[in-house]
């Protein structure tokens, strides 16, 4: 691959406070490394000025969904866009600023070397500055065990939203992507398609603005729904 086309997908729901900074930091990484990196913001029916702020910050494309599709539907829109525009690598980054764009070269490296079809930027592969809550650690252990049970792979940070996909995975995601809480489920789908994934260590910080969408009640539903989806997909 000479000069691969990389697309960073940033799904955003009411992220006017942090989105501009995320886009500018990605552009800075592109300038520093000489990589061809485009950015697409998928606005998932925000009620604030996310679209206007993202356009002003110079996102390559802003896709404005007419109403809220949820994270899975919004993320899939980005992969569909990547597939239609023939990108070699699609990266997903959270709009809240918790992922550091400086790690983009690290995350896409295994794909460029042809080692893996899919890469997860993980908080836990090596010791990083990130501190997580007890609830999050319980969920992490639950999901890691679930993935190990179904795929025989050990994933330390299965819910990380900092990920990179090659062309085959982009096409697969454009066809099917889970509606809600997709992170864990897609790892199982990838493994069952005979594609490979790996984790690399990245830095993560607390979100810069806005609020997290995960509440304690939703966490319970999250684990049950994903558990069911993973076990069913294991029988396909």
């Amino acid at each position: 691959m000479n000069q691969p086309k990389v697309l960073v997908i940033i799904p955003a729901y009411n992220e006017e406070g942090s989105i501009a900074n995320v886009i500018r930091r990605i552009q800075a990484v592109a300038a520093d490394t000489g990589l061809h990196i485009d950015t697409v913001v998928v606005n998932d029916g925000s009620k604030d000025a996310t679209v206007r702020v993202a356009r002003a910050a110079g996102a390559t494309a802003v896709i404005d969904l007419p109403f809220n599709l949820g994270i899975g539907g919004a993320m899939q829109t980005g992969y569909l866009y990547a597939h239609k525009n023939q990108y070699d690598i699609a990266l997903q980054i959270d709009a809240d600023g918790q992922h550091n764009p400086h790690d983009i070269p690290t995350v896409i490296e295994p794909i460029l070397r042809g080692e893996s079809h899919f890469v997860v930027g993980s908080r836990y592969v090596e010791k990083t500055a990130y501190r997580s809550s007890a609830m999050r650690r319980i969920g992490m252990i639950f999901f890691s065990s679930l993935i190990r049970l179904v795929t025989k792979h050990t994933v330390k940070d299965p819910t990380s939203g900092f990920r990179a996909a090659d062309r085959r995975v982009i096409r697969m995601f454009a066809e099917y992507y889970p509606v809600d809480y997709p992170e864990v489920e897609v790892l199982v789908h990838i493994a069952r398609r005979g594609l490979t994934f790996q984790e690399v260590s990245v830095e993560m910080s607390e979100r810069q603005a806005g609020t997290s969408s995960i509440t304690p009640i939703k966490s319970a539903y999250y684990m049950i729904k994903v558990g069911l989806a993973v076990l069913i997909s294991a029988t396909r």
């Binding site: 494309a61 896709i63 007419p66 109403f67 569909l80």
Partner: peptide, 29 residues
């Protein structure tokens, strides 16, 4: 509905990219 919404939004983005200075008559902004 999800697939139609995604296709429509991508199509609109393409239109917007082709004529960026034309003000859209957006319903929800």
């Amino acid at each position: 509905v999800v697939r139609l919404t995604q296709e429509l939004a991508i199509y609109q983005q393409r239109e917007h990219a082709a004529q960026p200075h034309e003000k859209e008559t957006a319903l929800h902004e």
